[in-house]
Simulated assay, not measured.
Amino acid sequence: MYVDAPNQVIQAAGGVRYAYRRCGPAGGSPLVLLQHFRGTLDSWDFELIDALATERDVIVFDHAGVGLTTGTICRTVRELTADTLAFLEAMDVRQADVLGYSMGGFTAQEMALIRPDVVRRLVLAATAPRGAAGIHGYPDDVLAHADFEDLGIQDYLYTFFNHTETSQRSGLEVVGRYIERERDRDVPVATADRAAQYEAVVEWGIPDHRALQRLAAIGHPVFVAGGDSDLVVSPQQLHLLAGLLPDAQVTIYPDSGHGFLFQHHRQFAEDVLRFLR
């Protein structure tokens, strides 16, 4: 179970020591999960990972300079992509299925474009295409609840879950699962590192029609997914992303926000595993 998965470390050729956790059956292409803004090993919902790990070898890691990983923080999506490829090389992963969540979805798209041989299938969750209108930084209300040192439960619920009784209750259940891991927890992202990550988010969102056209080069099967009430990435962005990809399907989950994959973890995991099969 992911709640008990040990922290492991592997050193890449460049000297960075990557912290990661791994669970699920060995063999075949692993499923590599890429983090959201200020996410760490502890930011993934344990029940989602466990559901995915019933069929897949799931790998989660901290980027350079984040959490328990050494090195210099990445300031652009291209740097995040190079960092991901360095980790996979160190792990001797030649090809993987990739699930990119939010900022991690930016990295997943870039990976598929510059190293298509490394990616088998792509899951893009609560994310947007480079250069799309309306994503040049997070909305002010989201930043007010996401970009400071100590996030409270109410800040998390505001940003990641729909503002309905059912969705907020689901968010509280996720928080309850989050605190189940009592030992060997990851380290929160520091203020300076968080600012560097946000530079990558803002740079990705600079309006650029030519960047949108690049998506036509992604020939992999892609599953695009998100919540119907996401304050960070609107359903319109998800449909735009899917429409620009040659081989994509899109699913919007009801009564959910940016954390739709945690709220609907059972259904989302079932949909992802079916897609990956």
Rank of each mutant, 00 (worst) to 15 (best):
L245N: 09
L240I: 04
H265K: 03
D271L: 10
A269C: 08
F268C: 03
R266L: 14
Q249S: 12
H258M: 02
V250I: 15
Q263R: 07
S256V: 00
E270N: 06
F262R: 05
P254M: 03
D255I: 01
D255G: 13
P246V: 00
L261C: 03
A248F: 10
H239R: 15
F260P: 09
L244E: 03
Q263I: 00
P246R: 08
P254Y: 01
R266P: 04
G259N: 10
L261I: 06
H265L: 06
H265D: 03
L244T: 07
Q267K: 11
S256L: 04
A269R: 02
F262G: 08
Y253P: 02
D271H: 11
R266H: 12
E270P: 01
A242G: 04
D255S: 11
L245T: 06
D271V: 12
S256P: 14
L261S: 13
G259E: 14
Q263V: 01
A248H: 06
H239C: 11
G257M: 08
F260C: 07
L245G: 07
Y253H: 07
D271S: 05
Q267Y: 10
F268P: 01
D271W: 13
L241A: 12
V250M: 15
P254L: 03
G243I: 15
V250F: 14
Q249I: 14
T251L: 09
L261K: 01
P254E: 01
I252A: 07
A248E: 08
V250C: 15
T251Y: 09
I252P: 14
F260E: 00
D247K: 15
F262N: 09
A242Y: 08
G243S: 07
R266M: 12
D271P: 06
H264W: 10
G243K: 14
F268G: 02
Q263E: 08
A269P: 05
A248S: 06
L244S: 13
Q249M: 15
V250N: 09
S256W: 06
D255W: 08
D247M: 04
F268D: 00
G259W: 14
H239L: 10
L261F: 08
I252G: 09
L240P: 04
P246G: 00
Y253D: 00
G259R: 14
T251K: 12
L241H: 05
P254T: 02
G257V: 02
Q267I: 15
L245M: 08
I252F: 05
D247V: 02
H264V: 06
A248V: 07
F260G: 07
V250H: 07
S256Y: 09
D255R: 15
F262A: 11
L261N: 06
L244W: 02
V250W: 13
H239D: 05
R266W: 05
A242H: 10
G259Y: 13
H264F: 08
L261V: 10
F262M: 05
A269S: 10
L245Y: 10
P254G: 00
D255L: 09
A269Q: 01
F262H: 14
T251P: 00
E270M: 05
F268E: 00
Y253L: 02
Q249E: 14
H265R: 03
Y253G: 02
S256E: 02
L245A: 07
